[in-house]
Design a protein around this nucleic acid. Structure first.
Lengths: 216, 216
DNA sequence: CTTTGTGAATATTTTCACAGCT
DNA sequence: AGCTGTGAAAATATTCACAAAG
């Protein structure tokens, strides 16, 4: 039921990647079927919640058995849209950009770094992996040519806003900002700030309340 | 009022870093006071929710005026525990590790990379920034010596679990896992998997359904 | 037996709306 | 005037618990 119709809560969509990762791990371990309880153990998400989440998109389970790992993974990929490859632009080919370009998590989900930009003349014309490095002035042209709508920004903080402006102007719709700079983008362009420090910060609170940290 | 006593919801703690970042930005712009509405515009979090969150820790605002930017920032730092410096260990000094070591977001919040480990003989004994690179076999000794309880893992995926095991054995309580490998840790050790791909994945859903993500 | 899918119950989060202070 | 802090309401999220199905 409810394969379409009512809006799917945002929280459900945010949990789908966790289910997908869990299922891909199980698939690698050659596990054929999985119960919601097993997935709960692996993801930390309540079993009933997992079942309820999945039912938003259809009845994928078999009563008394569980879910077929492979087919459920495929269904979630279809729901998210990661069953088809997606081209990404990467701006900044320094240490961070190089690490991102090599990151196998991207490829695992069908993301392909299709264009790289860096303003360092020593890097332009070279390749990172298989992808040629262009000057940022070519962002508009190259992104338009490839029809790219997602980008990762890994430039120095003071170049972040300018880079985002260029990407937005070129038609990019989703930007992952890896710099410490807070940036703004026009309506219709999603910016995600990937700041690990925030995670460290809030863990501090729990560390202290558990008296695991010297009071100082 | 409620300065401690009843448990503070986890969501509140998770939002505090957002408030802090926003306030630090305003401080840099020499803004003296800020209303919850202005903070709402800057963070995307509902103004009433911001006020309610802050009241968990005391009444910091002035009616008719707003919040004093500097003192509220200081209060949040105290609540989180980032008013005092914290030493971190970094394992892996490749591209990603180097980028992390240089990342100014860490220093901004008082985190100091106090120890670096890498198994590459060419890197051992050298420095990344001001910090000496050690062989991972010294993790236990160096971390014990510095009293380090937080660590960032930026090694190749196949070395991730081994590294986490070593860090946990050395007494580290918070681990930020930057690899694509899913790892486990003993009770009492928090592992945070920092996987940006999950964020890209769920944005795909909204891109495809051509819907704008609820204002943020 | 096992496990899904789901109505009902519970808990939590978010938002409104305004009294009261500056 | 402008804004916080907060009861009350609304909206969501989570969990329970079990009938139905393999």
């Amino acid at each position: 039921m409810a394969t379409k119709g009512s809006a799917v809560p945002e929280g459900v969509i945010e949990r789908l990647p966790a289910y997908l990762n869990c299922l891909m791990d199980l698939e690698e371990e050659r596990v054929a079927t999985v119960s919601s309880q097993r997935m709960s153990d692996l993801t930390g998400i309540n079993a009933a919640e997992i079942r309820r989440d999945l039912v938003h998109f259809g009845s994928f389970g078999i009563k008394g058995v569980g879910y077929d790992v492979k087919s459920l993974a495929g269904r979630i990929q279809k729901i998210l849209g990661s069953d088809k490859p997606h081209r990404i632009a990467l701006v900044g080919a320094g240490n961070l950009g190089s690490a991102i370009a090599k990151y196998d998590g991207l490829r695992k989900h069908g993301f392909e770094i299709a264009a790289i930009f860096d303003k360092d003349p020593a890097r332009i014309g070279k390749r990172l992996g298989a992808t040629l490095i262009h000057h940022p002035k070519e962002i508009d042209q190259v992104i338009g040519h490839h029809g790219i709508y997602m980008a990762i920004v890994a430039v120095p903080p003071d170049a972040a806003q300018r880079t985002v402006d260029q990407l937005a102007a070129a038609g990019v719709k989703v930007i992952l900002n890896y710099t410490s700079a807070r940036v703004t983008a026009p309506d219709g362009v999603q910016v995600h700030n990937s700041d690990p420090v925030n995670e460290l910060l809030y863990t501090l609170y729990y560390l202290r309340s558990r008296k695991q940290v010297p009071e100082g």
